[in-house]
Simulated assay, not measured.
Amino acid sequence: MMSGIPHVNTSNFDLNLLRVLDALLRERNVSRAAERLALSQPAVSNALNRLRDLLGDPLLVRVGRAMQPTPRALALETPIRAALRQIEQSLVVGEGFDPARSRQRFTLAVTDYVELICMPPLLRQLADEAPGVKIAVRHLSPSLPAEALDQGELDLVLGRFEGIPTRFSSRRWMSETLRLVARRDHPHLAEAPDLATFLRLRHLWVHGGQTRGMVDQWLGEQGLARDIVYTTPNYLQAAHIVVGTDLTVVLPTRLAQHFAGLLPLAVHPLPFALGPFHLDLVSVAQREDDEALQWLIERLMAIGRS
């Protein structure tokens, strides 16, 4: 049984073992870690055993079918990931980023709304300028995924946030307004609605994980409320539900116009004035010298301005 924390001789420590530990902590599975590293499963198992001996800790223990990190492994996770990222960035300094030859993979967290608006023009541009670059998208929760950014699991986040910590770099990506969307032959919307008509409508609300959106906050301040009969976290499903029912939905203007070009939908102004909301592009401030990431940010910022 292992006890205590032995002295680690860093002068001959195999740094490749840190890559293995990072992959194991990400995947919590030897087979998936091996696939991530393009190594055999026995090679990863052997590396884990070496790490256990060197660090005097089991690092990952099996609980049922999963492998759970020990407190020692969890304490090492963030600094190891940061160190590996620093090494990778240092190795490419002076080489310059060549988009035409790059095989880099970027991971972004966005909502389905941002994905629909942003990714088609980005992918067209990548096909022309950087055909080897790959994009992976994760679903964005309402709060900023700060830990995933810190640990290098995410390269960029695109969304609406408040109180972004100073350790992150934030750029205003786009400002948006809201519109009311309904099927074209909606029985109560032959023209743009006034407030009384708006309140009589049956509404679908895309909550996106929020407890209250801009519309309902404004109505609440006036002592009013609308009739929300259906809620969903998905912007993309909302338009398809509305087109087949008498429900209405408030959508970002770009998204409303996009769907109105594809489906028999009408887009109306809201019967009250709401200011715009803002979407920000967030990355780790320490990566300001990462040429590849800054190249991608420039392309995304151009899309936001278009």
Rank of each mutant, 00 (worst) to 15 (best):
P6M: 15
H7W: 14
N9D: 14
L17T: 02
R19F: 08
V20K: 00
L24D: 01
E27N: 03
R28I: 07
S31D: 05
S31K: 08
R32K: 10
R32I: 01
R32P: 00
R32Q: 11
R36Q: 07
R36G: 00
R36A: 12
L37M: 03
L37C: 02
N46I: 10
N46V: 12
L48D: 07
R50D: 03
R50E: 07
L54D: 03
D57S: 08
L60W: 06
L60E: 11
V63W: 08
R65Y: 08
M67W: 15
P71S: 14
A73K: 00
L74V: 13
P79W: 11
R85Y: 07
R85V: 04
Q86L: 14
Q86N: 08
I87F: 12
E88L: 11
V110R: 03
T111E: 15
Y113M: 14
L116P: 00
I117F: 06
I117Q: 08
P120T: 11
R124L: 07
P131W: 09
P131Y: 10
V133E: 08
K134G: 02
A136S: 15
R138A: 14
A148L: 11
E153W: 07
D155C: 03
V157I: 03
I164Q: 06
P165M: 15
L180K: 08
R183F: 10
H186Q: 02
H188N: 07
L199F: 05
L201D: 01
V206H: 02
G208P: 04
V215T: 15
L219H: 05
Q222L: 09
L224H: 04
V229G: 13
T231E: 15
P233F: 14
N234T: 15
Q237L: 12
A239I: 10
G244I: 06
T245N: 10
T245M: 06
L247A: 04
L247Q: 04
L251R: 12
R254F: 06
G261D: 09
L262E: 14
V267T: 05
L274P: 00
P276Y: 12
P276D: 15
L279I: 13
D280Y: 15
S283Y: 12
S283R: 13
V284P: 00
E288P: 00
D290R: 02
E291V: 04
A292E: 09
W295N: 01
W295G: 00
A302N: 11
R305D: 05
